[in-house]
């Protein structure tokens, strides 16, 4: 119980200081939390992979820039949940040049110019299996609706679909609400039961065999697009948990600038 003198003193004290201190304190807390979560915004640990210019080209009578984008998918990345099953899609820091595994770092953020012809080359090292939906075994949205697949033994073929039971991953890009929502691209990245198991140590992967998939598409308008894999390569229900449900493995962004 407060004594009368103290209470008199209390009443004289202006609450302004306490109010301002509370407001600033809570505001600082909110900002700190915002900074914390915002710092988790998916930016690639190895930086953005910028497509390399190949000059200009003509598509359907229109002149446009031509760029190349190269990346790999490899299994068993660190950070995948339970470290079981197959792993993340990833690209090398240096998107061309040295092919040695140790030089690779994960990056799932790409950058391509707007309204350009983008030629993508993917080295697919991972094992795989059947798709949840055979629709993704077809090539959608590339030039001519095809992709060129080179198998580990070196034979090349131009295809518009692949055996739905032998898909490692897919590279599926969509326009996001607000930017070019009609944009859609999906290419299956094949694998084969005969593909040597590349999962394991880096040295295994050094000698790993890959399917190489090449295709071209015309990029949309400026903005950020989302890409992800649509093959069931994760864990839990429908194999879409784990790495499939976290940015940085089987999903990322494409900045179109």
């Amino acid at each position: 119980m407060a004594d009368p003198e103290k209470s008199q003193e209390d009443e004289r004290k202006s609450p302004a200081f306490g109010v301002v201190a509370t407001l600033l304190g809570v505001f600082a807390f909110i900002v700190a939390v915002g900074v914390f979560f915002s710092s988790q915004y998916y930016t690639s640990p190895s930086g953005t992979v910028v497509a390399q210019s190949l000059g200009t080209t003509e598509v359907n009578g229109q002149s446009m820039p031509h760029v190349a984008l190269n990346f790999q998918t490899y299994p068993n990345s660190t950070g995948s949940r339970n470290a079981q099953g197959t792993g993340p899609g990833s690209v090398p820091v240096h998107s061309s040049g040295s092919d040695s595994w140790p030089a690779y770092g994960m990056s799932n953020v790409f950058q391509v110019p707007a309204h350009s012809l983008v030629t993508v080359t993917v080295h697919q090292y991972d094992s795989g299996g059947p798709l949840n939906n055979p629709w993704f075994s077809k090539v959608h949205g590339t030039q001519d609706g095809t992709a060129t697949v080179t198998t580990p033994d070196g034979t090349s073929s131009t295809v518009s679909s692949w055996d739905q039971n032998n898909i490692g991953h897919t590279f599926t890009v969509r326009g996001v609400p607000g930017y070019d929502p009609n944009f859609f691209l999906s290419v299956p990245l094949p694998t084969n039961a005969d593909l040597p198991n590349n999962e394991g140590s880096a040295s295994n992967q050094d000698n790993g065999q890959s399917y190489t998939v090449t295709f071209s598409f015309i990029s949309g308008g400026k903005g950020t697009y989302a890409w992800n894999c649509e093959a069931p390569c994760g864990q839990m229900v429908a194999a879409f948990g784990g790495v499939m449900s976290a940015y940085g493995f089987m999903s990322g962004f494409i900045h179109v600038v």
Partner: peptide, 14 residues
């Protein structure tokens, strides 16, 4: 409409 403040996963968890 398309903010780069939060990743989709972070957003869903929040």
């Amino acid at each position: 409409a398309h903010s780069s403040f939060l990743s989709p996963g972070t957003y869903n968890n929040i």
